[in-house]
Structures are given as C-alpha cells and as structure tokens.
Design a protein around this nucleic acid. Structure first.
Lengths: 122, 122
DNA sequence: TCAACTATTCAAGAAACCTTGAAATGACCA
DNA sequence: TGGTCATTTCAAGGTTTCTTGAATAGTTGA
C-alpha cells in the first residue's frame, strides 16, 4: 500500500459515522448489508449515508454489489489490514514499543517479540 | 481508549505532514528531536510545524519536553498502539480476516492464528 | 407503461481545517 | 539590560469536508 492510499484510508476512518459503518458491517462478513437497512439501523438520512459509504468504498475499505434494487455493502478486510500495516510497518518502521503497545490480541512477531494480551494499557 | 480519543488520533494521523512527523520521530525514541531540527529536516515553516506538532500532541501521539530554549518532541508509542488496537479490536471486533490482513510482522494471536509475514497482499 | 421502491447525485450553506506572515513569548548570553 | 534565538500564538484567507432537501436514475412488478 502506498502513501496516498494509506492517507485516503486514514482520512476515511477518521469520522464518527464512518467508524460506525465499519463497526456495523464487519460482523456481517462478505454478505454485508443493504444500504436501506444500514440507514435504518444507524438512523441516517439516505444522502448522508450514501456520501459516507462512497467515501469508504473509494478508500478501499468497503466493497459493494447490487442485488435486485438493493446495494449491499461489506467491509474489505484487506483494505483495513493494509492500512494498519502501513501505519505500523512503514510509518512507524516496526518500532518495537509501538508494536508492543498494540495490546489485546494483536502482537509483534518481529525479533521474536512475545504476545501481549489482555486489557489495554493506560 | 474511548471512541472520541481514537477519533482524534485517527484524524491526527490522516494528514501527510503529520505522517511525515511520526515517521521522522519514531526512530528517535524517547529522546526525540528539537522543533527547529524537525523544521529544517522536513523543510517546514515554523508556524506550520508548530500547528501539526500540537495537533499530534493533543491527540496523544506525541510528547514534548523543554530543554533550554528547545522543545523536544518524541512519539508516544502507547498512543499509536492504542489507536491501532481500537480500530482492530473495538471497531472491527477482532474480525479474523481483518487481523489476518495485517500482514508483514503484525499478526493475530486470537484463536491461535499463526504469523503472517513477508510482503504485503494486493 | 406506470407506479413504487432503492439508492445516488446535485446544489447550497455551514463548519472545520490548513497555510502564511506578522507579532508575541520565553530563555539564554554578552 | 538589551539582543538574539527557538518556538508559539494570532489573524486572515483559501480550501476542503459535511449535512440537508430536492431532484434524478435505475429496477421491479402490476
């Protein structure tokens, strides 16, 4: 992932409504959810939802497919994963302390660092 | 880390100059770098640099300390780590595919998933 | 074909963000 | 005390982003 794609993805993530969308859609897996149902679930006006969905899709964090008159949106796991990897690996250059600070089920393997799990640090 | 802090941190990361700052400062460790030297290295006007440094500090991604007339800035590894953790754990709810897509030296330990290393996916 | 339904596009206004030069603050040294 | 240096604050401007209602496009079924 290159710099400008990573920046687009980070900008896309940096908004409350769009974070809500990711959170809602992630558990739905590949099937995703129709725009109308998303709008109803989150209580969003249609144009507003459309605006944010397309921002996320543009950034490579969401995929869409048409089914009859509905458009189903689902997360693109590799888009999110590559964005995280960009920050950690490319931008923070795999700095051990940064990797170590990714507590709770994510951990550094570089240099044989061990798992850090449990609740987050303060 | 709560939602609003994570949002502030993501917004802070979503800017080219600030990503440059993180990348420059990470290898410097706790000692960090004086504002003037940062400005010279990146070729930034002083007020502009100050604006971005304080945005990053405000978001908990940078720390500062005064030494004589200089102000040294250094990254806060736990700030970055907690932000990443928020996206992966809280927002993506530890979705296996998202965790798996964090290739290249970051990997999921949940459910005993194995390391994924090497070059990034496309 | 027509009506109903789903979703997107458009346009306008409000709000937030970024950059810049000028001014101000605070620390050090002669 | 006065001058210089390092950094921040201020104010103005331009740009981008977000929200909203109105209009549009495409699909389905009677």
């Amino acid at each position: 992932m290159d710099r400008s794609k990573a920046l687009a993805a980070l900008s896309a993530l940096a908004h409350e409504t769009r974070l809500d969308l990711i959170r809602l859609l992630t558990p739905q897996g590949d099937e995703g959810m129709a725009a109308g149902q998303i709008a109803e679930t989150l209580g969003l006006a249609a144009p507003r939802l459309s605006f944010h969905l397309s921002a996320l899709e543009q950034a490579g964090l969401l995929r869409s497919r048409k089914v009859a008159r509905n458009v189903f949106y689902s997360v693109d796991p590799s888009g999110i994963g590559q964005t995280i990897s960009y920050v950690l690996n490319d931008c923070c250059r795999d700095h051990p302390e940064v990797l170590a600070a990714c507590t709770h089920k994510v951990l550094a393997s570089d240099q044989g660092a061990l798992a850090v799990s449990g609740t987050e640090k303060t």
